[in-house]
């Protein structure tokens, strides 16, 4: 398999895509729906925000391995963070997956496990897959019932 493909489809990503964590609805929590018309991916993201802190986060929907793994790992990463910290994490994550190829690589300690998505920057058409859950999370944090689209 090619180096780029291996970078994209890291073991951790494949694992989360096959067995997504926090894959359930939180009917009482704030939620938003995300849609990627290009590939038909849909994700509903739920956040239970208590006293400014993400107490729980989850998602349901169907998507490709990149969007499913991204949603799964995102829900793990934002638990316990404030809304502002979650948004900051999104910005860092976004910078990682959209890095110009010559600036890719290097350590990203602040991203923790999410650094496995670094390979996405070699696949411009897959950036939307990885970022959809995060855009949807942002919408859910800002107010219930929103719908976001990648297009």
């Amino acid at each position: 398999m090619s180096e780029e493909l291996r970078e994209l489809y890291q073991e951790v990503i494949l694992d989360h895509s096959k067995r997504p964590r926090n894959f359930r609805a939180l009917p009482e929590a704030s939620q938003a729906e995300g849609f990627n018309p290009l590939c038909g991916d849909r994700a509903t993201v739920f956040v239970d925000l208590q006293d400014g802190t993400v107490k729980d986060a989850s998602f349901v929907g169907s998507g490709c391995s990149i969007s499913t793994a991204s949603a799964s790992m995102m829900t793990e990463a934002v638990k316990g963070k404030s809304a502002a910290e979650a948004e900051e994490l999104f910005q860092r994550f976004h910078a990682l997956i959209t890095a110009p190829p010559d600036q890719a690589g290097g350590a990203h300690p602040e991203l923790g496990k999410l650094a496995v998505f670094a390979g996405v920057c070699e696949f411009p058409v897959r950036v939307k897959c990885a970022s959809l859950p995060w855009h949807t999370l942002k919408a859910a944090l800002q107010g219930a019932g929103a719908t976001v689209s990648t297009e």
């Binding site: 398999m1 090619s2 780029e4 493909l5 994209l8 489809y9 096959k18 018309p37 290009l38 590939c39 038909g40 991916d41 998507g63 490709c64 391995s65 990149i66 499913t68 696949f123 897959r126 897959c129």
Partner: peptide
């Protein structure tokens, strides 16, 4: 089964095979 068309498209591309995935 178990594979999203989008992932199929990306992996096939690395085999030189261009197909369309989507709606």
């Amino acid at each position: 089964e178990g594979v999203h068309p989008h992932d199929m498209g990306t992996v096939l591309d690395y085999e030189g095979v261009a197909i369309r995935t989507g709606h």
